[in-house]
């Protein structure tokens, strides 16, 4: 599993980020100041760094410059929404920029995008109970038999399978499957989810959560 370094001076925020990332089974290491972060990043392997800008000892920009040579992707976390900070961060080589406060799923989505960009070799197949998804060949097998799905239905299924046991809102599905610029309604999402549920016989497992969205639930939940 990817190893992520969280550099954040506020104890509660780093605790929150850690809790969010553990939901996706990421491995987390927390640092509370810039110096400590530089030391750890230079001596340990990481797949991603979540970096706050306002830090004691050494600020986020300074940390980024010192660990640049490691080639680890960095996502800035900051309370400042100013454009100059954003530009400075991205120019220094940050991959993305998240403005506090953020929702858990937003953070996870951004992390996934950056990780995917860096690890081109994704797990080729996803597995959920009797369903198997081959992402490269775009094929869905249920009990070894192929189930035909439209491309959008396929994307919805993949997104849900990537977030098993997490509630996914219609907006998140819309933005990640149809793209941010898609001006569709949440009805579109509902129809696709229903078709996926029917085609793959996921009744009782792909549940609707009122006022929130959908959740693909695992049978043997820990």
């Amino acid at each position: 599993m990817p190893r992520i370094c969280i550099v954040e001076d506020d104890r509660h925020i780093s605790q929150m980020i850690e809790a969010t990332l553990t939901m996706m089974d990421y491995e987390c290491v927390c640092c509370t100041d810039g110096k400590e972060a530089v030391e750890r990043i230079l001596s340990e392997p990481f797949d991603l760094i979540l970096l706050d800008i306002m830090l004691p000892e050494l600020d986020g920009f300074g940390v980024l410059e010192k660990v640049k040579s490691r080639g680890i992707p960095v996502i800035f976390l900051t309370a400042m929404g100013s454009v100059t900070d954003k530009v400075k961060g991205l120019r220094l080589g940050a991959e993305d920029y998240i403005v506090k406060p953020f929702e858990a799923m937003e953070l996870l989505a951004r992390i996934e995008v950056v990780l995917r960009r860096y690890h081109k070799e994704q797990p080729a197949t996803l597995r959920y109970d009797e369903i198997e998804v081959d992402q490269q060949r775009h094929i869905v097998l249920k009990d070894g038999k192929e189930v035909p799905l439209t491309p959008k239905q396929f994307d919805v299924l993949v997104f849900l399978m990537k977030h098993v046991d997490l509630a996914v809102s219609r907006e998140q599905l819309l933005s990640s499957v149809w793209g941010y610029e898609f001006e569709g309604e949440s009805r579109t999402v509902d129809i696709h989810v229903q078709q996926v549920r029917k085609k793959l016989g996921l009744q009782g497992r792909l549940v609707t959560i009122s006022k929130l969205g959908y959740r693909l639930e695992s049978r043997n939940h820990r």
């Binding site: 925020i13 306002m54 309370a79 400042m80 929404g81 406060p101 929702e103 858990a104």
Partner: peptide, 24 residues
Amino acid sequence: LAHEMKTPLTSILGFADILRIKRE
């Protein structure tokens, strides 16, 4: 002020969201 307000808000929003979306 924005910074001071956003810091607690980040924890509040984050933990509330975890409580909301996590199955168990």
